[in-house]
Computed example of a mutant assay.
Amino acid sequence: MASLLPQLWQLCLLRIGPQDLPYSPALSRALVVAALAAGLLNAAAADALGEHLLPRLLVTLAFLVAVPWLLLRLRGYGNRLAQTVAAIAGSSLLYALAFLPLSLLTADFDPAEPLPAQVLAGWIGLFLTGWKLAINAHIWRHALGLPFAAAVLLAVGLLLVQVGLGRLLEGAA
């Protein structure tokens, strides 16, 4: 795992693609579990472990595994699944760990009277989310053989669907 961290960092800097990660279904599974655990840690830090936790975890799991499986199969690149899932889950893990201090800082956020540090945390969170979108677009471009603009549209579209589905399931729960 220690030798994987520099590769994941290079992926997040858009210097390598998912094809440069080791082909290992076991590694992909481990990164998915780690990314889900980091998401749980963020939810705990933000005091958001409530009743809607299971639907959120299921949506996250679907977008880490099922969506890449489906998109890669549709494009005829099913053999790229392990590395694509590793790239998405690994970058999601790093994103969640980078977001953890922001979750801790904004746990008691009051929109009527935000603290200056909370406003700064919001801007940093927005930057991190934009960066994660760029990373996802980079991964999709390499994994699916798409032009960058199409990969950006796919990454943004998937984020919107994921957030919308999460909201819908939270309302249904």
Rank of each mutant, 00 (worst) to 15 (best):
L27F: 01
A30H: 06
A30G: 03
L31G: 04
V32R: 09
V33F: 09
A34R: 08
A35V: 10
A35W: 00
A35L: 10
L36R: 01
L36C: 13
L40G: 15
L41N: 12
L41G: 13
N42C: 15
A43S: 15
A43P: 02
A43Y: 07
A44T: 08
A46Q: 05
A46N: 07
A46P: 08
D47T: 07
D47Y: 08
G50Q: 04
E51Y: 01
H52F: 00
H52L: 08
L53Y: 03
L53G: 10
L53A: 10
P55I: 02
R56P: 03
L57W: 01
L57V: 11
V59M: 04
V59F: 07
T60K: 10
T60L: 13
L61M: 10
L61H: 09
L61N: 00
F63N: 05
L64G: 01
L64A: 11
V67G: 02
P68L: 08
L70R: 11
L70V: 15
L71K: 05
R73I: 01
R75F: 04
G76A: 10
R80Q: 12
R80A: 11
L81Q: 05
L81T: 05
L81A: 03
A82H: 05
Q83M: 12
A87N: 12
I88F: 07
A89I: 10
G90T: 10
G90P: 09
L94K: 06
L94R: 12
A96Y: 06
A96T: 04
A96G: 10
L100S: 06
L100D: 08
P101W: 05
L104A: 12
L105H: 00
L105I: 02
L105C: 08
L105S: 06
A107Y: 05
A107H: 09
D110M: 05
D110E: 02
P111Q: 02
P111R: 00
P114I: 02
P114A: 01
L115V: 04
Q118I: 03
L120D: 06
L120A: 15
L120M: 09
G122R: 00
G122S: 05
I124W: 00
I124F: 02
G125S: 01
L126M: 11
T129N: 13
W131P: 05
W131Q: 08
L133R: 01
H138E: 11
I139D: 01
R141C: 12
H142P: 05
A143H: 10
A143R: 12
L144W: 12
G145P: 13
L146D: 11
P147H: 14
F148D: 07
F148C: 03
F148N: 04
A149G: 07
A150H: 12
A151K: 02
A151L: 11
V152G: 02
